[in-house]
C-alpha cells in the first residue's frame, strides 16, 4: 500500500504531532505548523490524532494512490481534485485504487494543508515520530521533502473506513476560519530587556509577514522595537511561539523547526492556538499581537479540545448510520 509522487509541490513533507522528549539532546520538536488542522483531519477519518500526513505548502502536488482509500484535506483550501473531480476540503473523500489526487491551488483560507489518509502514512518512525526534520535529514520520507518518483508507504486504513466517506468537519469548527484573528500573545521571559515604548510598539502596531519565513521561524517587518538591554543573552530554551528580537529590532516568531536553544532576547511568546493561525498567513499579510494572560491562551486550547470531542462523536454517529453509495 503506497502512493507515488508525480509532482512534489513546493515543499511537501511527512508530519505527525512531533518528536517530543528529545530537546535536551538538541533535537527539535518538528511539530506540524498547524497542529489543529492536522488533528481535525485525523479525527474526521477516525485515525489516531498523531497519524502522519502530508504537510503541503501552497500547491502543485500530484500523487497516484495504489490502493482503495479515503483521504481528507485539512487546512487551507488548496483546490483538491480526485481523478479530475473537485473534492471539498475537511471532507472524507473516497479514492479508488490507482486514483490520482491533484492539488493545484490557488490557496484559500491559508497556505498550509494536511493531506490525511485513513490509517496514516507508514514511513518508519525515527525516535518516536514520523515528522520530517529536513535540516538534520531526520524522520519522514528519507529525511527530506518529497520528490517526483518517490513511493511512500501507507498504513492499513482504519477499520470500517468506507462508512466514513462523505463525513465533513462542520464549518464552525474549522480552525482556518480564525486565521485573521489577532495573535494572542503572552509576555516573554526577557520582556524586561525592552523599553516601555518598545513593548507598546510590539503590542500596538501591525507587523508584516516577510518572505523570509519557513518551518523554523516567521520573520516580521515593522517598526523597530526599542530595547534597554543588548539583544544577545546567554543561550536558553526556545519555546514554540517565542518572539525573538535580534539586533535589528524586528521580531522573529519561532515555529515548528525552531532550534532547541538560542541566544536572543524573547519579548513575548505567541499562544499555541495562535501560532498555528500565524502558520496560515502569507508573505505580505499584516498581523497584530494581542496581549493575553496564560489562562486566556489556554481557554482557546480547551475550546478546541471540546470541539474535537464533539467532532469525534459526530463521526461515530455518522459511521453507524446506513449509507448508500
Amino acid at each position: 500500500m503506497s502512493f507515488v509522487v508525480e509532482r512534489p509541490g513546493m515543499m511537501t513533507i511527512v508530519q505527525d504531532l512531533g518528536r517530543w522528549g528529545r530537546q535536551f539532546m538538541g533535537i527539535p520538536v518538528s511539530d506540524p505548523m498547524d497542529q489543529f488542522s492536522l488533528r481535525i483531519g485525523n479525527v474526521v477519518l477516525g485515525n489516531d490524532q498523531n497519524a502522519a500526513a502530508l504537510e503541503i505548502v501552497s500547491s502543485g502536488l500530484d500523487i497516484t494512490v495504489n490502493v482503495e482509500q479515503c483521504v481528507v484535506l485539512a487546512g487551507a483550501d488548496l483546490n483538491m481534485r480526485i481523478n479530475g473531480l473537485a473534492s471539498p476540503p475537511w471532507t472524507v473523500n473516497y479514492i479508488p485504487r490507482g486514483g490520482r489526487i491533484t492539488i493545484d491551488g490557488p490557496p484559500k483560507d491559508g497556505i498550509r494543508s494536511y493531506l490525511c489518509f485513513s490509517g496514516g502514512i507508514g514511513v518508519p518512525p525515527v525516535m518516536g515520530s514520523r515528522s520530517t526534520y529536513v535540516k538534520a535529514s531526520l524522520g519522514g520520507y528519507k529525511g527530506r521533502a518529497l520528490k517526483a518518483g518517490d513511493v511512500v508507504s501507507l498504513c492499513d486504513p482504519a477499520p470500517l473506513w468506507r462508512r466514513g466517506v462523505g463525513f465533513a468537519c462542520p464549518a464552525d469548527m474549522r480552525p482556518t476560519q480564525c486565521n485573521d484573528e489577532p495573535l494572542y500573545t503572552m509576555d516573554g521571559p526577557q520582556i524586561d530587556a525592552f523599553t516601555q515604548s518598545g513593548i507598546d510598539t510590539f503590542y500596538g502596531e501591525t507587523f508584516t509577514v516577510t518572505r523570509d519565513t519557513d518551518r523554523m521561524g516567521c520573520r516580521l517587518d515593522g517598526p523597530e522595537i526599542g530595547r534597554r538591554k543588548p539583544p544577545d543573552i546567554i543561550s536558553d530554551g526556545i519555546a514554540q511561539g517565542a518572539v525573538q528580537v535580534p539586533g535589528r529590532g524586528r521580531p522573529i516568531v519561532m515555529m515548528s523547526d525552531r532550534q532547541t536553544t538560542g541566544g536572543y532576547t524573547k519579548i513575548a511568546v505567541v499562544s499555541t492556538w495562535s501560532i498555528a493561525r500565524l502558520a496560515q498567513r502569507i508573505p505580505g499579510d499584516e498581523v497584530r499581537f494581542q496581549r493575553v494572560g496564560e489562562e486566556e491562551a489556554v481557554s482557546y486550547l480547551l475550546r478546541f479540545e471540546r470541539d474535537l470531542w464533539r467532532l469525534d462523536n459526530m463521526r461515530a454517529a455518522y459511521r453507524s448510520k446506513p449509507h448508500y453509495y
Partner: peptide
C-alpha cells in the same frame, strides 16, 4: 512533556490541559 537544561535555566514544557 520534557525538561530541557541550558547553561543557567531549565525549560519545563508541559501540556496545560
Amino acid at each position: 512533556r520534557e525538561c530541557v537544561p541550558t547553561y543557567r535555566s531549565l525549560s519545563v514544557y508541559y501540556n496545560p490541559l
